[in-house]
Amino acid sequence: MPTHKRIDVSKVGDVTVVKFVDRKILDEAGIQELGAELFSLVEHDNRRSILVSFDNVDFLSSAALGKLITLDRKVKSVQGRLKMCNIRPEILEVFQITKLNKVFDIRGEEAEAISAF
């Protein structure tokens, strides 16, 4: 199991649950590391059912959105499934403004999201 600096990774059944270590995802170096760690779940660890939980996250910048979009594409390219949950209203508004709520599979609570896989 590789070690991660920016994410906590656990498994619930077949679903890989990813939580962010940082409450504010905004600095460029951290976002680059975050992206590399997320992508390695798909490309190195062959995870195919991934739930990204935002329950620790208070803030994220548009640069972080780019990493989530790339993750979504990588998961879809291997016929995997990516869902997101526990998103606070202000961040949900970011997804709605940018219409990323149409791209991402966004759920409410973690249990609901896991049961949807």
Partner: peptide
């Protein structure tokens, strides 16, 4: 453009 990795700052 929906899945472009950048270009959302001004709209936000």
């Amino acid at each position: 453009r929906l899945e472009a990795p950048s270009g959302r700052g001004v709209m936000l």
